[in-house]
Design a protein around this nucleic acid. Structure first.
Length: 457
RNA sequence: GUGGAUGUAGCUCAGUUGGUUAGAGUGCCAGGUUGUGGCCCUGGAGGUCGUCGGUUCGAUUCCGAUCAUCCACCCCA
């Protein structure tokens, strides 16, 4: 097959056969966030380039080599968001949300774009679940978002994920530490790798992150940030640990976590797993007290995290965690001729309005082919409509799991069908698609029916 | 951005030591008589062997480039 073109490198298609998994995950994430008091915010996928340059930092890898930047027809420099925080902070400031009751807590699910070299678990377009909390300076805020992430993992049934935390201090103590660090690194400068050499001036802490054996050996002997952070920062970090202890969340201290985005301060953390190869970080975040000021707002403490949805799904599949099945077609209406098809269309609409998945043939295929199709899509019940049935105003409904059949009147068919379902197994029936009002109606309907048990064959 | 592996039907893979009409399983469609699925049987559709170029009388098989996927580095979610 010679296609005109294929999906762009590093992008993924989410196909209908698996989209329910992602839907479930995303709904779960937003619901858990809501339980923690975080409500969804949606911001555009692109922003003015300067926003990301300023927030992520000119020295960050993201800004230096990974952004999707283009000039639009109005000569604006536009960038597809490489991460979620900047846009949310921009909206927070632009709409004066800092005037609302503090803290302001927000969640989001958004696509992010980075010009990386693709690998499994790393894509040029990926989707990120994120949390931002504005206006809370205390360590309880970080503790809360960490426990939120932790809750997501336990809820989804994931294992083998560990939490690593670190403090990189505030502006003041970090300056002092950087000074000490640079003095140390200068002494070893000729041994450092090329990239680290270039980081030496602007952002020496990134060198601690370097994986090259020489650099990491040098880093191992380097002064430790935790020995330099000021009293307040130290107290903050200890308080965070007490909160985590109180909630029974396990963690380890990892002084090498510095994070790639320049806006972090004090707490940084990562949830990592050994089950995803080189893409080990499932969730990363921390505190960024200086960012809002950096973007033109009044000083305001803030913290948050990002979580990769594709990685989450990969991990779920790798670990064999159970996800809900795709919603099942409850009734497939087989029609033998055109008149039956008209009736099928009418009944299907009634059933759908009742909130259940109901399908009928739209290919004018043979009865056998329709039955086959119903079997293939795993329909729970089928109903055969033809001349005989229309004449008698009734239809044969077949349970595809057991193979048993019953005749139902077409008058008030939906009610009759529900009665049949009740006789077979109430629990099997899926009310997932009903809205709240419909659910109430349906449950009182079922309660009513349960009073007078109907005859069985 | 660096290094390595891979690339044949929708999917999983055979195969051609370079030679005429490229295979299997599975999936898809249709039949196996009168209106009923899952098993079985039969038939059909579907590939210019990732793409472009080179060597050759001739390449899907050899060589090169390119694109894509995967792995490690890097980076991060």
């Amino acid at each position: 097959m010679s296609l005109l073109t294929k999906a762009v490198r590093g992008t993924l298609d989410l196909l209908p056969s698996v989209s329910h998994k992602t839907q479930y995950i995303e709904n779960t994430l937003l619901e858990i966030a809501e339980n923690f008091g975080f409500s969804e915010i949606r911001t555009p996928v692109f922003e003015h380039t300067e926003l990301f340059k300023r927030s992520a930092g000119e020295t960050s890898d993201v800004v230096q080599k990974e952004m999707y930047t283009f000039t639009d027809r109005g000569e604006r420099s536009i960038t597809l968001k490489p991460e979620g925080t900047a846009g949310v902070v921009r909206a927070f400031l632009e709409h004066g949300l800092f005037n609302d009751a503090l803290p302001q807590k927000m969640s989001y699910i958004t696509p992010c774009y980075r010009y990386d070299k693709p690998q499994a678990g790393r894509y040029r377009e990926h989707h990120q679940f994120g949390i931002e909390c504005f206006g809370a300076a205390g360590a309880a805020a970080e503790a809360e978002i960490i426990s939120l992430a932790n809750e997501v993992f336990t809820y989804l049934g994931l294992v083998n994920i560990s939490l690593e935390i670190n403090s990189i201090g505030c502006k003041e103590c970090r300056a002092e530490y950087n000074k000490a660090l640079r003095e140390y690194l200068d002494k070893n400068a000729e041994k450092l790798c090329e990239t680290c050499l270039s980081r030496l001036e602007k952002n020496p802490m990134r060198i601690l992150d370097c994986k090259s054996s020489v650099c990491s050996a040098i880093a191992a002997e380097a002064p430790k940030i935790l020995d330099y952070i000021c009293g307040d920062c130290s107290e903050h970090f200890l308080t965070l640990q007490k909160y985590l202890d109180a909630m029974g969340i396990e963690y380890s201290l990892n002084p090498r976590i510095v994070r790639g985005l320049d806006y972090y301060s004090r707490t940084v953390f990562e949830f990592v797993t050994g089950d995803l190869g080189a893409q080990s970080t499932v969730c990363g975040g921390g505190r960024y007290d200086g960012l809002i000021e950096e973007l033109g707002g009044a000083a305001m403490p803030a913290c948050g995290f990002g979580m990769g949805i594709e990685r989450l799904l990969l991990l779920i599949e790798k670990q064999g965690c159970e996800l809900p099945e795709k919603d099942r077609c409850e009734l497939y209406i087989v029609s033998a001729d055109r008149d039956a098809s008209y009736m099928a269309a009418k009944i299907a609409l009634e059933m759908r309005n009742f909130g259940t998945i109901c399908l009928f043939d739209i290919c004018e295929r043979s009865v056998k082919a329709q039955m086959k199709y119903a079997g293939k899509i795993n329909a729970r019940y089928t109903m055969v409509l033809g001349g005989d049935e229309l004449a008698k105003n009734e239809a044969i409904v077949k349970n595809m799991d057991s193979g048993s059949q019953r005749t139902l009147s077409l008058n008030d068919f939906t009610d009759n069908f529900m009665r049949l379902v009740l006789d077979n197994s109430v629990d099997d029936f899926n009310f997932g698609n009903l809205n709240l009002q419909q659910k109430n109606e349906a449950s009182s309907f079922l309660t009513l029916l349960q009073g007078g048990k109907s005859e069985d064959e």
